[in-house]
Design a binder for these strands. Sequence first.
DNA 1: CAGTTATTGTCAAACATTTAACAACTCTCA
DNA 2: TGAGAGTTGTTAAATGTTTGACAATAACTG
Lengths: 207, 207
Amino acid sequence: MEREISQAVIRRMPRYYRYLGELLDSNVERISSNELSKLMHVTASQIRQDLNNFGGFGQQGYGYNVKFLHDEIGKILGLNQMHNVILIGAGNLGQAIANYVNFERLSFRMIGLFDVNEEKVGRTVSGVEVHHMSELSDFLKKNKVDIAALTLPKDNAEKVAQELVEMGITAIWNFAHVDLEVPDNVVVQNVHLSDSLMQLSYNITQI
Amino acid sequence: MEREISQAVIRRMPRYYRYLGELLDSNVERISSNELSKLMHVTASQIRQDLNNFGGFGQQGYGYNVKFLHDEIGKILGLNQMHNVILIGAGNLGQAIANYVNFERLSFRMIGLFDVNEEKVGRTVSGVEVHHMSELSDFLKKNKVDIAALTLPKDNAEKVAQELVEMGITAIWNFAHVDLEVPDNVVVQNVHLSDSLMQLSYNITQI
DNA sequence: CAGTTATTGTCAAACATTTAACAACTCTCA
DNA sequence: TGAGAGTTGTTAAATGTTTGACAATAACTG
């Protein structure tokens, strides 16, 4: 029944959302696929095609209403609801991510950090307490958690991921440099910084 | 003359590199595309096709020599040479990235951090000094810098990127949530954390 | 050392994505 | 209010990517 929408399209949606947000801030009321294509350096055809995957948001002869389209894409991306996030591994990167998420106003909220290091336990990062890993199970029983961010060394990542899944977590934002093996009902979004850096390195040598 | 290799292929190379590194650590001497395909959950055909973009690294009836292939992919990705990296914006994320890069042994070396915040100037992060932004120009004259990492608020990112390009930087690892407009000879690799989080959010709502 | 098995490199087919083209429709302005 | 300009949604073509198939060849086995 429902046609699956390709990840190629999904990857582009946040970018549309960002540009529309900026247009909204600049009090632009309407925009055509052609104008937007110039702004974003993609083809107008792709914009229309992409948006049409989700329905007809525009109007012939007029274009798209910026506020309406921004809202709709927000809904598509699930940004109209709050996501509670916890983070495992309150190291350097973990703390940076904790801060980062709390800046993403409205849709994501960091509600707990976890670490095995006793020295970190009890501290707060960006107003959020660091708990010991042993408290994780209890915490998950008491709080609705939508996303777990994994910012820990790759050696522990697989094991922790498995535990998280057993405890009912179904979405993992994975910063560990490893491919997690999880059941089909669990979503993993990887941020592999090394891979990104290597890709950059490749592209440097090509010029 | 030279056929351009698609970014789809390039994106996969670091992953091959990682798996081959792990095999190497496990003292595996040879591997067939079929075995590797099972390990990585991709088709054997894709592996052979990908590798053949760069030349025939395997041997019929034998497979691929793990060490040789690992080395070759390393060379393709430019990891056989040292890249000096500087970082602009020594905030939370910047410090985490500085640490991270210095862990990536062998190929990347963080040699300087820069910030406008006087309080941060003079400190060291992961053994690297934080300089004031005003020293950037001098620093670039005295040091060979291959990559600049941008970890600063988006409002300043475009301006700083422009300055970097004018000072001769040709590779930018961009963590700011903005699309940088740079000349053709400059390579930009984006890490848009918000986009990644939104993609995750979308995929959650789809299950 | 000959026969059998394994495995690559590569060609072609299948599939997916992107771009172009245009009919249908709406808006604007005289 | 009607003609012309503008713009979408959608279909079809072009392009790009992935998969399957297999000939060529090397390694292994007895």
